[in-house]
Simulated assay, not measured.
Amino acid sequence: MRLDLYHVFFITAQEKSFSKAAEKLFITQPSVSHAIKQLEDKMEVQLFVRTSKGVTMTKEGKLLFEDLQQAFSIIHHVERKISEMKNLESGHVTIGGSDSTCKHYLLPYVQTFQDIYPNIQIRLQHGSTPQILDKLINGLIDIGIVHPPIRQNQVQLTEFLTIHSTFVVGKKYKELSNQILSLEELLSYPIISFSKTSSSRKYLEKLFEQQGLTVNPDIEVGSVELLIECAKIGMGIAFVTKELVLNELAQGELIEVNVHETLEKRTVAITTKKDMPLSIAAAQFLKHLTNGNI
């Protein structure tokens, strides 16, 4: 049954007049009468009784009106919510990334986005790159921040940032600041790195493999902060993202160790699920990221 017939009935019941309903609906009075007759025929009940003052509802008409009142109220509520979303007055975005990615790269964008759109709720979920991709594919997040390369054809990648890797030590190994070491020479010192599942660790292993070497870190950590502290107190040589330790290098708390081999730059990428349109709020946040609005 067509929704427009119910709408004509609902407005007629509110106005208690076919002619007033016609004016409000911008149609002719015969069109109102015809719509009501169609509805009555379909339902096989009489909905209105004509009087000298207009029309009144029958018992069946009152029952239908009460239920339609709730239905149209829900429709109007949904329309209002969608309008708010279109105007970015409501909505939410769920973003996934590693702890260090969220803290050092993502949060500045979240802050500037919320300054512009304070009513949009930002939700953060953390995890390794494989975990973030899994959450994205299963619809648990809208946008992921990951470290390529990845082997997943269900997602789309957009380059976000370029980062650089380096080796650092604390003051205990300050004599290394005046040397240029080979990767083989590095292995004579304790190596500090992230766990085996991290993209940083995989990059480190590949770096050594290219020289025919195998690296087995003496210390494995789960956060950038802990990795930095381990290096500071002299527990070994830490493999880090240089952009994350610029302050410590400038203040002399950490010392960069130069190596003969070239450490290729890496990328941080934004990923979204292919063939899955983003919500209005998520699409706006993605635009905020890609435009570099920090």
Rank of each mutant, 00 (worst) to 15 (best):
I141T: 11
D218V: 00
F208A: 03
K232Y: 05
I228Y: 06
I132A: 03
A250E: 13
L183Y: 10
I120Q: 04
V221R: 00
K171F: 08
Q154I: 03
F160T: 03
S182W: 09
E220I: 07
G127S: 08
T214F: 00
G252H: 02
E205K: 11
V215I: 11
L187S: 02
T166R: 14
S193G: 13
L181I: 09
V245K: 08
E229F: 01
L181D: 07
S200E: 14
E243H: 13
K242S: 13
I237A: 02
V221C: 01
I233G: 06
K135A: 13
E253Q: 13
L187W: 03
I145Y: 07
R201G: 01
L161G: 02
D218H: 01
V221D: 00
R123D: 14
Y189R: 01
I141S: 10
I141L: 08
S128H: 02
F194W: 11
S195G: 11
Q251L: 08
P217E: 05
L186N: 02
N258H: 12
S200I: 07
V259P: 15
I219V: 13
L263D: 11
R266T: 07
L204G: 02
Y203M: 09
H126A: 13
L136P: 07
T241R: 15
Q152C: 12
K202E: 08
G234A: 03
E220Q: 13
T158Q: 12
V221I: 09
I233E: 08
G144R: 04
M235Q: 11
T241Y: 04
V215K: 03
L227F: 02
L161N: 13
L207H: 03
S193M: 03
H164T: 12
G127Q: 09
S223D: 04
F167M: 07
A238C: 11
Q156D: 10
N119D: 15
L140P: 11
P149Q: 07
G234C: 01
R201C: 12
G139A: 05
K242Q: 15
S177N: 12
S200G: 10
I192M: 00
L187F: 01
V240G: 10
V146M: 04
N153Q: 13
L136H: 08
Y189G: 01
K171C: 07
S198C: 07
E253I: 03
T197D: 15
F239D: 04
P148R: 05
G170M: 01
V168I: 10
V257Q: 01
K206L: 10
V257T: 02
M235W: 00
I233V: 14
T166V: 12
R201L: 06
S195K: 14
Q210P: 01
G144K: 06
G170D: 01
Q179I: 00
Y173N: 12
Y173W: 11
K242L: 12
Q251D: 15
N258W: 04
V240M: 10
E184S: 15
P149C: 06
A250G: 05
V257D: 08
P149H: 06
L161H: 15
V245A: 06
E225K: 14
E264K: 14
L187E: 02
G222V: 03
K196W: 00
Q152H: 12
K242A: 06
S165F: 08
L246M: 12
F239Y: 14
S177I: 03
